[in-house]
Nucleic acid binder design. Sequence first.
DNA 1: TTGCAAATGAGAATGATTAGCATTAGCAGT
DNA 2: ACTGCTAATGCTAATCATTCTCATTTGCAA
Lengths: 141, 141
Amino acid sequence: MNELLHLKSAGLKSTLPRLKVLSLFESGNDRHLSAEDVYKKLLASGDDVGLATVYRVLNQFEQAGILVKHHFEGDKSVFELNQGDHHDHIVCLQCGRVEEFFDATIEQRQKKAASERGFELHDHSLYIYANCIKPKCKYKN
Amino acid sequence: MNELLHLKSAGLKSTLPRLKVLSLFESGNDRHLSAEDVYKKLLASGDDVGLATVYRVLNQFEQAGILVKHHFEGDKSVFELNQGDHHDHIVCLQCGRVEEFFDATIEQRQKKAASERGFELHDHSLYIYANCIKPKCKYKN
DNA sequence: TTGCAAATGAGAATGATTAGCATTAGCAGT
DNA sequence: ACTGCTAATGCTAATCATTCTCATTTGCAA
Ligand SMILES: [Mn+2]
Ligand SMILES: [Mn+2]
Ligand SMILES: [Zn+2]
Ligand SMILES: [Zn+2]
């Protein structure tokens, strides 16, 4: 019942759509999902939710700190469970595989770059676009 | 007449809209401009171009390597002159000021992060969102 | 000059995301 | 358990940036 705590502490009612979205992310099959991904997965599993509701819930969860939003190359944004650990992403340009990484040196040098120029770092986004080295890459022929 | 060379070598006809867009960037008043920015600036200076043409020209210039496109926080993308030097950006969340920086260590560790995980780095995007430290910040009250 | 492919411009179309609004469903208090 | 009220949902319509269509214009090579 971790989900309920999450929702309650965020001041959000425990509704069916919210629980479904949450458990989708907690099932852990895919960490990074777009609104459309979530919508389709729920439909596929027989759960009826409106696309608008999916968008709303995802944004509410982000504001509540339950999810984190990312903007990978392309138009649509993706969400993932916020597990406290900050990390950045490597995205395969061929198969779309997403790998997570954390580099303390990079983090530190970003802070330094900011402060040296009269800024106080609030946030950053770092995406590495790359190609899987075969044979891992499930390149779409 | 550097512009003409640019265009010719890219296989692009030297048309009025293209020359105007190019000289706008080369005037150097603002390095980072969105399509809308470019459109409005051209209109303001009495030059009539269609918005669609601006979009087309910007993308052609990007493909030709004349401009580089960035996706700062927010929806609209911005372009800047490609002067050969790669750099990343710090964006002030309050006043929108954009500062450029380059950190060899960060670059190198990105490459390493990728190769260590079976990727060949192709590209990356790094944006630092921060707040100007007063009194530099032209915060919009 | 002429001819013609390439480029332009105005507006329609697109695609992701959000807003509006009537209907439904949590849930606090009986 | 029953009421009532507010928040949440689910349509649909609206936004907003960007792209597409296509009739008209323009650069430029012969
Ligand atoms: Mn992640
Ligand atoms: Mn720049
Ligand atoms: Zn791959
Ligand atoms: Zn500022």
